[in-house]
Design a protein around this nucleic acid. Structure first.
Lengths: 189, 189
DNA sequence: AATTTCATGTAACCAGTTACATGATTCA
DNA sequence: TGAATCATGTAACTGGTTACATGAAATT
């Protein structure tokens, strides 16, 4: 249950990708370096240690190819414990804190939620996301109206862009909900 | 000149805020904890060390209030070297790399650019920003068309949101350019 | 055989997080 | 005078960055 917040953005991305199909460190590297999946570093110094940590926690397991060789290649697959942790993380309620400070991570969660938790949970996620943003927007408008811009001449414009991004996110979420409702099939698991 | 890329997002935010008016660590903490200025941590463990580093580099200088006391309070003001570094950072050309991976930082740069570099440079910044994004969007569409979504069922939707956010950023940039052109005044320095 | 690309790793460094500690000030 | 709040700090930990090193496979 507190499995939910033990992942960094990178480890969540790795776990999600590995849950879809087994991948090697290099596979992940390629995905991260070829846009636009994540704003992650494709540096081996991040990916391999992260894989190692996931393995130590029992969330992924390496399938060694070509044994008895100095440097074996591995594809990692997700374990049942890893799936549990992923489900817990993706299913965590969307909070205001997420909306304000972890918007990127919310989209990352969305990218995997359908495959891991199924259609109904995906729709629920998007509906709550939209609702939370709609609750939050008025406080941003108030901020702008109050001119609490800390002395920046163009702060209001920056804030305006932020608000607009939230607004299109709401519209997008509602549109995706409609599309999912029309589409066939429940959980893909 | 390689003053330009020595700042983390946090140190850039601090330097920018301090350039507008002298502030204490606690002032910054309040700004970061009261949304929406940045997705920064308001933790003292980040702010005070960052201020210390900026001071060591000679970019800010502390004005000690109430001397001869065990724990003096300080407001930091920006130095000439700090202004130079800020100008270099804000004036750095907008690259594709910035567009793809450091969008948040671009908005942060925008928030301070008018006050530091003046109206003409602000307009230039926004025009280049818009142009770079417009160059980039087609490759995202291609990515979507090519279905290189790494096996995620809803990856295309996530990508779609990304594209829409870029599109409204372009529209916003163009609108702000028009507004700035109408408004009076050049550099505010 | 040599070069390029695929593929995995490590070590030093650095900045942010969390949690804790403590000094000043204000106000009931 | 005691409590709350303002304000500054530190120490241990963690994870990402950069730069480097090297092993295997494919290509020429």
């Amino acid at each position: 249950m507190s499995d939910a917040d033990i992942h960094t953005t990178l480890s969540l991305a790795i776990l999600g990708l590995v849950s879809l199909e087994p991948r090697s460190g290099y596979d992940l590297k390629k995905i991260f370096s070829s846009t636009p999946m994540g704003h992650f570093s494709a540096s081996p110094g991040a990916i391999y240690p992260a894989l190692r940590r996931l393995e130590e926690r029992g969330f992924v397991a390496g399938i060694v190819e070509r044994k008895h060789v100095l440097r074996p290649r591995q594809k990692y697959k997700i374990t049942e414990a890893g799936m549990q942790s992923l489900r817990a993380t993706l299913g965590r309620p969307v909070t205001r804190r997420d909306i304000v400070w972890h918007c990127e991570e919310l989209i990352l969660r969305f990218a995997f939620i359908r495959d891991v938790l199924g259609k109904a949970k995906t729709i629920e996620f998007l509906e709550i996301l939209a609702a939370r943003i709609e609750e939050y927007i008025p406080s941003l408008r108030a901020e702008m109206a109050a001119q609490r811009l800390h002395g920046s001449a163009t702060g209001a414009y920056a804030l305006e862009l932020g608000i607009e991004k939230y607004k299109i996110t709401v519209a997008w979420a509602k549109r995706v909900v409609r599309a999912l409702n029309k589409s066939a099939g429940g959980s893909s698991r």
